[in-house]
């Protein structure tokens, strides 16, 4: 089997802890109900999350604690309260994903440590898209140094592991779109996208995604990140495109798009389809393996 459904999903704690404070936050929170239904209807047996808020340096990390239980307080929005979590992880898949990444030349490792801090972005997606641990999940980190080539390889390794698992898998990229945030406290009632330019870029990206043009969005990620401060250079789009097959052959469905503290947050699904009505081109190579960086510039 392979990927049966993909999501671009928001990452901010307001949606989990304080949605009622802003009409837009509430709408985006509530839109998860339809996404949950689509996830259930897909028959997915596993939800794999790539989180731009779980930063790694030593290659790529896969959560492999079968039951992470702890509490999370957001670094900025600690006044909103505490996110208590009790997750169910598919540890066999974590091992398989790690091995697949290593086979493609990536530095990768599983992490299985009591008290390991699961990041806010993963928790927002896990708790709103998959409450009560309806299906097991996987979580993979975002390497801060990885650029497009390495991130594509990480996505392809996920696809290797998914195909080897024989399971129906849904994948989610937890990321902001535009990531300019208010740097002074605001009244939640006054929240809006930080700038009109950011809003326009977000809407253009979402327009492409609604047309199912994920690969086109992947190709545009660098420009979007430059123009709209995309979170972690929008590498979540590279990962998502690679794990879903690097095509434009999807049915896109936008559940919601709102501002959260000035950033652009959207919930959108991509369902694979077999026929393509779109032509597209690859502007850059798509690497199959990663060669590493340790000995390029050193000594």
């Amino acid at each position: 089997m392979s990927v049966v459904l993909g999501f671009v999903a928001p990452s901010r704690p307001q949606l989990l802890l304080a949605a009622e404070r802003n009409d837009g936050w509430q709408r985006l929170h509530d839109s998860f109900a339809d996404a949950r239904q689509q996830l259930a209807d897909s028959g997915a047996e596993l939800l794999l999350i790539y989180s731009t808020q779980w930063h790694s340096i030593i290659g790529h990390q896969m959560q492999a604690d079968s039951n992470p239980r702890w509490s999370k307080v957001d670094d900025d929005f600690h006044d909103l309260g505490t996110i208590n979590y009790d997750l169910k992880i598919d540890t066999d898949f974590a091992d398989s994903y790690c091995e697949a990444a290593q086979k493609r030349g990536l530095a990768a490792r599983t992490v299985n440590y009591h008290g390991f801090p699961v990041d806010t972005g993963s928790l927002v997606v896990a708790q709103l898209l998959n409450p009560d641990n309806r299906i097991p999940i996987g979580i993979v980190s975002c390497n801060v140094y990885a650029d497009r080539g390495e991130t594509l390889v990480l996505g392809k390794a996920a696809r290797d592991a998914i195909e080897a698992s024989g399971k129906k898998v849904a994948v989610a990229a937890s990321t902001s779109l535009s990531n300019r945030m208010y740097t002074k406290a605001i009244d939640p009632q006054n929240d809006k996208i930080y700038s009109q330019k950011d809003d326009e870029w977000n809407r253009k990206l979402l327009e492409l995604l609604e047309e199912g043009r994920l690969e086109d969005v992947s190709q545009l990620a660098r420009q979007f990140a430059t123009e709209a401060h995309g979170e972690q250079r929008m590498k979540a789009m590279w990962w998502l495109a690679a794990v879903m097959g690097e095509t434009n052959n999807y049915n896109g469905k936008l559940f919601g798009y709102e501002a959260v503290y000035g950033t652009g947050q959207a919930l959108l699904s991509l369902c694979p389809q077999h026929s393509s009505s779109q032509l597209f081109e690859y502007d850059e190579d798509s690497s199959e393996t990663y060669q590493g960086d340790r000995d390029i510039l050193s000594k």
């Binding site: 790694s56 340096i57 900025d76 801090p117 503290y261």
Partner: peptide
């Protein structure tokens, strides 16, 4: 959102480096 300071008198527990 600006600069923050710890404002609780005591903390204890297990710190696991995420990296």
């Amino acid at each position: 959102v600006g600069h923050h300071l710890l404002g609780v008198p005591q903390f204890s527990g297990l710190s696991v480096d995420p990296i």
